[in-house]
Computed example of a mutant assay.
Amino acid sequence: MFVPITCQEEACRGATAADNSNSCYELVAASSFGKCQEMCLSQPRHCKGFEFSRGRCEIWTRPEGILSSYKLTGFTCFRNDLAPVFSPVDGGKDRACRGATSLGNSAS
């Protein structure tokens, strides 16, 4: 399900309104909003959302997802709320995954 991050006239951004690194998205050609949305839907686990503007489509792949936007005339940003977003557990560093307890390390 795609949810507009804000109203129209907003461009997608990462952690902050200034976070627009090329590594956050894949730029693709799309003749319409619908085509841009289709391209995102074709990769539901990878696409965190999309930005569309006059034949320009950014498929956002930033692992943490789209967390911000930037006011920009002619742009629309949509977040894919069904895309998985991974967060570190207990800070993530020097941690191993376990089950219900710290001893829960069954292969199942």
Rank of each mutant, 00 (worst) to 15 (best):
N80I: 07
A17E: 14
T6N: 11
N22K: 07
R54T: 01
P4T: 08
I66V: 08
Q37Y: 10
I5K: 01
C40I: 07
L82M: 14
E38L: 08
E10A: 12
C24N: 11
D94M: 09
S68Q: 12
V89Y: 13
G65K: 06
L67V: 05
K35E: 15
V28Y: 02
R13I: 03
I5F: 10
R62W: 09
F86C: 15
N20Y: 11
V89N: 12
R13Q: 15
Q43Y: 00
V89K: 06
G104I: 07
M39G: 01
E26Y: 04
G55F: 04
A100Y: 04
A30W: 14
I66N: 06
P4E: 14
G49Y: 03
R56D: 06
G34Y: 04
A18Q: 12
G49T: 01
L103T: 08
N80A: 06
S69R: 05
G99Y: 10
L103C: 03
G14N: 09
K71V: 11
V28R: 06
E51Y: 04
K35M: 13
S32E: 06
G99T: 07
I5G: 02
S32K: 03
Q37N: 04
G49R: 02
A107F: 09
C40K: 01
S21E: 10
F86P: 04
S42G: 10
L72V: 08
D94Y: 04
F86E: 05
S68K: 04
Q43R: 12
P4C: 09
R98A: 15
F50Q: 02
S42E: 14
I5R: 13
G92W: 07
Y70C: 03
C47M: 00
A11G: 05
F50W: 02
K35D: 15
R45C: 05
C7D: 15
W60N: 02
G49F: 00
S32R: 08
C36W: 05
W60G: 13
L82D: 13
P44M: 08
E9D: 09
A107Y: 02
V3K: 04
P44E: 06
T6Q: 13
L27H: 08
H46E: 11
R95Y: 04
A17S: 14
